[in-house]
Design a protein around this nucleic acid. Structure first.
Length: 275
DNA sequence: AACAAGACCTGCATGC
DNA sequence: TGCATGCAGGTCTTGT
C-alpha cells in the first residue's frame, strides 16, 4: 500500500498529537508481523516519551526519550490510526498503544507485511533495512548527476531500477509509473540509457509527483487511510496508474494507456509519448 | 554482480 | 451460491 507520500501523510498526521506524549500502555497482540517483534518489545516501549517522529524512505522513525528509535514499516496493508479513548481492538489490530493524552495509536495490518523494531539511535544508520537505501528523493542528494551514476551500467528496465530502493528511496509501483509518464520516459527503456536530458527530466518529475501526492494526503486505492481514518485524494490525479485503456491525457497525444507486467508488477504507461 | 522469480499474507473482484 | 483464479500500494530471499 504505502509509498513515500502515504507514509509521509501518516507521519504528519501523528506528529502534532504524539510528539511529547508518553506511551502509558503497550499491547502487542501477536508474536510477529513480517518478522518477530524484537525481544521485550512492549515492555521496552511502554513508559517511553516520543520526542520526534521522522521518516526515512517508507520507514517511520519514532525517536524515544531513552535514545532508542521505534521503527515502523507499513508493508502493503499497514495502517496507523489515532483514536480517542481506548476502543476495543478489532481484527488485525496487532499493536495498541495508549498515550498520556487519553488517545490510542492502533497499528492494523491484515496482510502482515509490515514490521517493527526498536533500535538504539547510534545503530540506526547501519540497520540492515536502512543501510542500503538510496537518497531521499525530496532531499538535496538526489539530482540528475547522482541518479545517472546509480543507473550507470544497469541493464534492467528503468521501471525496475526505480523500484529498487538502492537507486532512490521511497518510490513504489504507483509513483514510478506516474513519474516516468511525467518525464516522457518509457518504463521499458534500459536504466543505463537514462542519462543526460532524460535524467534531468526524471528528477523533477519524481519530486513533483511525490510532492503533489503528499499535498493530497496520499493515494487511497484500497488500503491507505490518514491517521484519522479519512481517505487520501491523489488517486483522482493519476494520469496513467489504474487507467488502462483510457486516453493519454497529454495534449495532442492520441495514445491509449497500456498495462504491462514487469517483474511481476503492473506498469501503466503511454506507448506513444513515453520514449 | 545483476537480475528475475518466489515467498510471505489476507481480502476483494471477477468469472464460471 | 460456491469455488477457483488473479490481483493488490513491499521487499527480503532464493535461484539463474
Amino acid at each position: 500500500m504505502p509509498e513515500l507520500p502515504e507514509v509521509e501523510t501518516v507521519r504528519r498526521g501523528l506528529e502534532a498529537p504524539l510528539t511529547g506524549r508518553r506511551l502509558v500502555r503497550v499491547e502487542q497482540r501477536r508474536a510477529d508481523l513480517r518478522w518477530p517483534f524484537p525481544p521485550d518489545f512492549a515492555t521496552r516501549l511502554a513508559g517511553r516519551r516520543i520526542d520526534a517522529i521522522d521518516r526515512r524512505s517508507k520507514y517511520l522513525l519514532f525517536r524515544l526519550d531513552d535514545g532508542a528509535v521505534w521503527m515502523v514499516h507499513l508493508g502493503m496493508s499497514g495502517r496507523l490510526f489515532l483514536k480517542h479513548g481506548a476502543p476495543p481492538p478489532g481484527p488485525h489490530d496487532h499493536v495498541v498503544v495508549e498515550t498520556d493524552a487519553g488517545s490510542t495509536l492502533i497499528f492494523q495490518d491484515h496482510r502482515r507485511f509490515g514490521m517493527m523494531d526498536l533500535v538504539p539511535e547510534a545503530e540506526l544508520a547501519t540497520h540492515r533495512l536502512l543501510a542500503g537505501l538510496g537518497p531521499e528523493p525530496l532531499g538535496n542528494e538526489f539530482n540528475a548527476e547522482s541518479l545517472s551514476a546509480r543507473l550507470a551500467g544497469r541493464r534492467a528496465p528503468i521501471k525496475a531500477a526505480l523500484l529498487d530502493q538502492r537507486t532512490v528511496a521511497g518510490l513504489g509501483n504507483i509513483y514510478v509509473s506516474e513519474a516516468l509518464y511525467s518525464a516522457g520516459i518509457s518504463p521499458l527503456r534500459l536504466a543505463r540509457s537514462v542519462v543526460g536530458r532524460r535524467a534531468e527530466r526524471l528528477v523533477p518529475a519524481i519530486r513533483e509527483v511525490l510532492q503533489a501526492a503528499i499535498a493530497a494526503g496520499g493515494s487511497s486505492l484500497r488500503d491507505h487511510r490518514r491517521t484519522d481514518g479519512s481517505l487520501g485524494d491523489f488517486q483522482h490525479n493519476f494520469r496513467v496508474y489504474d487507467r488502462e485503456g483510457e486516453r493519454c491525457p497529454t495534449r495532442g497525444c492520441n495514445g491509449t494507456i497500456r498495462r504491462i507486467v514487469q517483474n511481476g508488477r503492473s506498469t501503466l504507461y503511454c506507448p506513444v509519448c513515453q520514449k
